[in-house]
Amino acid sequence: MSFYLTVTTGLRPGELVEVKNENIHLNKRYFRGGFKTEAGTNRVIPIHKKVHKLIEDRMDPSNEYLITNYEGNKLSYYVYYHEKFKKIMQQLELKHKPHDCRHTFATLMDNAGANKLSIKRIMGHADKDITDKVYTHKDIEQLLIAIDML
């Protein structure tokens, strides 16, 4: 499930394991998360309509985090990578790293014709263009339109 969420949200794998249930707004189809860069910290991430139910089913009100271990405790990136991702890649005989999911997300969004600025905002990339950075605003409705193009 976590791989699918990374591909459909553009989150860095380390950001995914940090998503708190309190920051997920299912009724408005977005959550807040992210870190690493100024543009990526606490950003609005739209929820694709096809993964909405998946997130809803995964959310456990007794857990603080969306992605947890079997005891309901926070799953560290180390465990996510070594005990989940690597094992699945070995079983599938594939050689991918978790960050490849972000490449897939960006490619799928671009192939679907999503607005370049929306892709950057969802992924938490800084914008060097002063017009886009300062004067162009993307609200959640516009980000939802972009994400639903997948």
Score class of each variant (00 low, 15 high):
Val79Cys: 06
Lys84Cys: 06
Val17Leu: 03
Asn27His: 09
Met59Pro: 00
Val19Ala: 01
Ile88Leu: 09
Asn27Trp: 02
Tyr30Asp: 02
Arg58Phe: 09
Gly72Glu: 02
Lys74Trp: 04
Thr8His: 10
Gly10Asp: 05
Glu22Gly: 02
Ile67His: 00
Val79Glu: 05
Lys49Pro: 00
His48Asn: 14
Ser62Cys: 08
Lys36Ala: 12
Phe31Val: 06
Pro13Tyr: 12
Leu11Glu: 05
Lys36Asp: 06
Lys74Ile: 08
Asn42Pro: 01
Leu16Gln: 05
Lys86Thr: 04
Gly10Cys: 09
Asp60Trp: 07
Ala39Thr: 01
Lys84Gln: 06
Arg29Cys: 13
Phe35Tyr: 09
Leu16Glu: 03
Val44Phe: 11
Phe85His: 07
Thr8Ala: 05
Thr41Trp: 04
Phe31Ala: 05
Val17Trp: 02
Lys86Met: 05
His48Pro: 00
Thr37Tyr: 02
Pro46Lys: 08
Phe31Pro: 01
Tyr65Pro: 00
Tyr4Ser: 05
Leu11Gln: 09
Arg29His: 12
Thr6Pro: 00
Leu5Tyr: 08
Asn21Gly: 02
Val19Thr: 02
Phe31Ser: 04
Leu92Val: 07
Lys28Phe: 10
Tyr65Glu: 01
Leu75Cys: 07
Ile47Tyr: 02
Glu22Val: 15
Ser62Met: 11
Phe85Leu: 03
Thr8Tyr: 13
Phe35Arg: 12
Lys49Ala: 06
Asn42Asp: 15
Lys49Asn: 09
Lys28Pro: 00
Pro61Phe: 11
His52Leu: 15
Ser76Thr: 15
Glu56Asp: 11
Asp57Tyr: 14
Asn73His: 13
Thr37Ile: 05
Val7Pro: 00
Ile45Asn: 03
Pro46Gln: 07
Leu54Met: 10
Leu5Val: 11
Asn21Thr: 02
Phe85Arg: 03
Phe85Tyr: 06
His48Leu: 04
Ser62Lys: 15
Lys53Ser: 14
Tyr70Ser: 14
Ile24Pro: 00
Tyr77Asn: 10
His48Ser: 12
Val7Trp: 02
Lys20Arg: 14
Ile55Asp: 01
Val79Ala: 13
Ile45Tyr: 10
His82Pro: 00
Phe3Tyr: 03
His52Asp: 04
Glu18Tyr: 07
Phe35Leu: 08
Gln90Lys: 15
Arg29Asp: 13
Lys50Gly: 07
Tyr81Glu: 12
Val17Phe: 04
Lys50Asp: 13
Gln91Arg: 10
Pro61His: 09
Glu64His: 07
Tyr77Trp: 10
Ile45Gly: 07
His48Gln: 11
Arg12Asn: 12
Tyr70Gly: 14
Leu26His: 07
Val17Gln: 04
Gly34Asp: 10
Asn27Ser: 14
Phe3Leu: 09
Val44Met: 11
Tyr70Phe: 11
Leu11Thr: 10
Ser76Ala: 13
Leu92Ala: 14
Arg58Leu: 14
Lys84Leu: 10
Lys50Trp: 08
Gly14Met: 08
Thr37Leu: 08
Tyr78His: 12
Lys20Cys: 03
Val17Tyr: 02
Arg12Leu: 12
Thr8Ser: 06
Glu22Lys: 15
His25Ser: 13
Pro46Asn: 07
Tyr77Ala: 13
Asn73Gln: 10
Glu38Asn: 11
Leu54Ile: 12
Thr9Ile: 12
Phe31Gly: 04
Thr41Lys: 15
Lys87Asp: 05
Ser62Ile: 15
